[in-house]
């Protein structure tokens, strides 16, 4: 099951995408990006309004991947140890320390949900950072390794009170930050409101075939995609030029911004690496063996936007400036370059 041929994987991907689109209406872009993140073995942060289907989507996704999953709700008083250990009083009246949510399923853990990640304290973020970067942690005096782990976190953008913004280092470790909007078409919105099928999410996600994308095979698949998908020198140059012009956008024109003083930092080498990984996955998912500029364009915003750090004067308007900056860069950087 885990060493399927690549063409079989593509069929399964299409199947999973169709099923997920059936379960969550009007989120085809988000679903595509989530599937790409699974193909890259990257962690994802979903950001968006309340009630746009983030949690449903993540549960459906976990079901498509199959495998054990764990889930934690972020709260202000959540401590790192709460993720690892569960303390309770046993029947014999003595305190017991059992493995917590992360360890409960053993090292086979495939998906870890972190709901409302911005409600948790920075100590928790720090633990998560290690879990995401190294897929390992130390508990019960030993190292635990989670080779198949993929972290999905979500964050609502409405409330700012009693929340802790993720540090730049933590955001950088997410492959993608996908902003989830409510469905745009009236049909989708009405169906979501009136069709009883969408009222019970647990029943709803049971439509998704469990393990249609078997999690144990994804590491090898990701490896195969990364080695098998060609990136030509012209494309490498394109990606480099894009990142370069965003890092130093002084000759771009963006309304309402002084582009010479817009960027404070970001676009780490890891960011570029993630961009290439996601673009390769995108090309593979489209059935191609080489990355084209449109693959880079398709994944650029979710992979790169949260890695661009603006100067304090511009940071409050980040929601408009960063997309405008990326748009201007794509409009400007020539491909294939001379």
């Amino acid at each position: 099951m885990t060493d399927l041929p690549l063409s079989d994987w593509r069929a399964r991907l299409a199947e999973a995408e169709a099923r997920l689109n059936d379960v969550v209406l009007g989120q085809s872009r988000t679903i595509r990006l989530l599937l790409l993140s699974a193909l890259c073995r990257g962690h994802v942060l979903l950001a968006g309004d309340v009630g746009t289907g983030k949690t449903t989507l993540l549960r459906a996704m976990a079901r498509a991947l199959g495998g054990p999953y764990a889930r934690v709700e972020g709260t202000v008083d959540l401590l790192p140890t709460d993720l690892i250990y569960a303390a309770h009083i046993a029947e014999d009246g003595r305190p017991r320390i059992e493995p917590g949510p992360v360890l409960e399923q053993g090292e086979d853990l495939a998906v870890f949900f972190f709901n409302e990640i911005n409600r948790a304290r920075p100590q928790v973020h720090a633990l998560l950072l290690r879990l995401m970067a190294e897929r390992s942690l130390t508990a019960f005096r030993r190292e635990w390794h989670f080779p198949h782990l993929q972290v999905f976190a979500d964050r609502n953008q409405i409330e700012r009170d009693e929340t802790f913004e993720l540090p730049a280092a933590a955001r950088d470790r997410f492959l993608m930050e996908i902003s989830v909007e409510a469905p745009e078409t009236a049909d989708d919105r009405m169906a979501l409101a009136f069709d009883p099928r969408f009222h019970d999410t647990t029943r709803l996600i049971s439509d998704v075939v469990p393990g249609v994308l078997p999690y144990r095979g994804l590491n090898d698949l990701a490896q195969a995609i990364q080695t098998g998908t060609h990136t030509s020198p012209a494309l490498q140059r394109y990606v480099y030029d894009l990142c370069q012009i965003i890092r130093d956008p002084h000759d771009l024109k963006i309304e309402g911004a002084d582009t010479a003083r817009l960027i404070r930092g970001g676009l780490s080498p890891r960011g570029m690496q993630y961009l290439v990984r996601a673009a390769r996955a995108c090309a593979w998912a489209e059935g191609r063996d080489a990355v084209l500029p449109q693959d880079v364009r398709a994944v650029f915003v979710p992979v790169m936007a949260h890695r661009i750090f603006l100067t304090p004067a511009h940071e409050p308007r980040r929601d408009t400036l960063v997309p405008a900056l990326i748009e201007a860069a794509f409009a400007r950087v020539p491909v294939p370059a001379a």
Binding site: L292, P293, Q294, R297, F330, A331, R332, V333, P334, V335
Partner: peptide
């Protein structure tokens, strides 16, 4: 096109 045109 007024901006970079790719095949897509």
């Amino acid at each position: 096109f007024g901006r970079v045109l790719i095949g897509a």
